[in-house]
Design a protein around this nucleic acid. Sequence first.
RNA 1: GACCCCAUCGUCUAGAGGCCUAGGACACCACCCUCUCAAGGUGGACACACGGGUUCGAAUCCCGUUGGGGUCGCCA
Length: 445
Amino acid sequence: MSEIRVRFAPSPTGLLHIGGARTALFNWLYARHFGGKMILRIEDTDTARNTPEAVAIIFKGLRWLGLDWDEGAREDGGADGDRGPYFQSQRLPIYQRYVEQLLAADHAYREADGAVRFRLPRTPGVVKDLICGEITFDRSHEPDPTIFRKDGSPVFHFVNVVDDLEMRITHVIRGEDHLSNTHKHIAMFEALGATPPQYAHIPLILNPGGSKMSKRDEGASIGEYMEQGYLPAAVRNYLCLLGWSPKDNREKISLSEVVEKFDLAQIHRGNARFDLNKLYWLNGEYWKELTPSAYHAYARDYLARRGVNLAAVDDRYLDGALDIVREKIKLGRDLPDWLEPFLDEEFAYDEKSLTVTLKEPQAAARIEKIRAAFGAVADGEWTAAKLEETLKALAVADGVKVGGYVHPCRAGVAGRAVGPSLYHMLEVMGKERVLARLRRTLRKI
RNA sequence: GACCCCAUCGUCUAGAGGCCUAGGACACCACCCUCUCAAGGUGGACACACGGGUUCGAAUCCCGUUGGGGUCGCCA
């Protein structure tokens, strides 16, 4: 058997659609599993919405997901491989050559206005699909598809076939929305005297409402996940689970393992509905597993992208803050808010601190005691354990639960009712900063 | 409307005739842990769309109904 060649052929629409991303992923997995070639072709024939920015978004999304390709379009507009060009906008002469071939063989005919139609055979159209099985279409009443418009531009169905033929694609793995048209594609291959590729139609990703995901739907764009601070490994893992399963009750599975186990035969037949909850959870699983240095690097990069100025922040202080905040959140999106109390000495007080905790009659007295007790802690002993001991001793002396001291302390030092472990937060902030903040709060009350 | 595909908990799925009084995960609920919020732990509720067959036996096979999705463009 000859080499397996699969392709991902997106059109630049301004976003990398989640369904497209999964199609890319499944093609990639198939190629990697069988040692075949992955080809990227940009279907940029719709000049209206085809812009350099829109093309760049596709490259960016694929790179982010870690999907590489062996042949095809390059970011710089060039190409790797010798079956190009890989941008359809550069292939018009090829399409013209092929349409002439069809015309000459009477497999196509020209309308009065100049448009060209493919003469669809009236015999039953048989599609042998690797996922859906053998399907027969009755096309005795199907209209002949237009393959060239009257303005001289070629139509999708035709260019798709010509490109797959020219690029020697052996397996076409695409969304099920193309299934009903596949018999036409096969007929075109045959009219061109070529053997059609093997087709595999994967189920669609539906929005939570149950219809085809559109670009308007929340979560439809890979770009959203980048912005929200999802981890590419988690998104990739989630996408694998939509329509495919390792069959052993595991949810978290490494890419290399998926490559090893992947096959088209086990792809689920029904459409999958998109569920953000599971992705969110999965992201948390990957979030926990980041190595400290990978996490620090990721967080810095994310914060920078979100416009958080870290220039004045001490590196070790930031790392410490990042470390204790990490276990509280699941993705980058929550980083700026959780970090804010660490970074801003002029931090604001939240609703609960303002109206409840700091309003309680004993608040000032307790914070004063905390300040005094903390002030007495030796610099070398400023650890979470020591601070916990100190605060608890205060509570015991007062005959109150430790919460009676924890809450005002948290409000006094961070202005928030909710935050990371108080003792660890105090340790990271350091004695000097904590005392200064407590003094500031005292002045506020 | 015609044609095509699909049908297991709310969601993603395991299940290829007996192992299923249907398993896992997310979400949900309760309890535990606890300085808040999470995380974690324990437990719980929740599904084979319906009707006919076939078979000793059906979630699994067949037919029908219903439901959902897709395609029928000189969009891609």
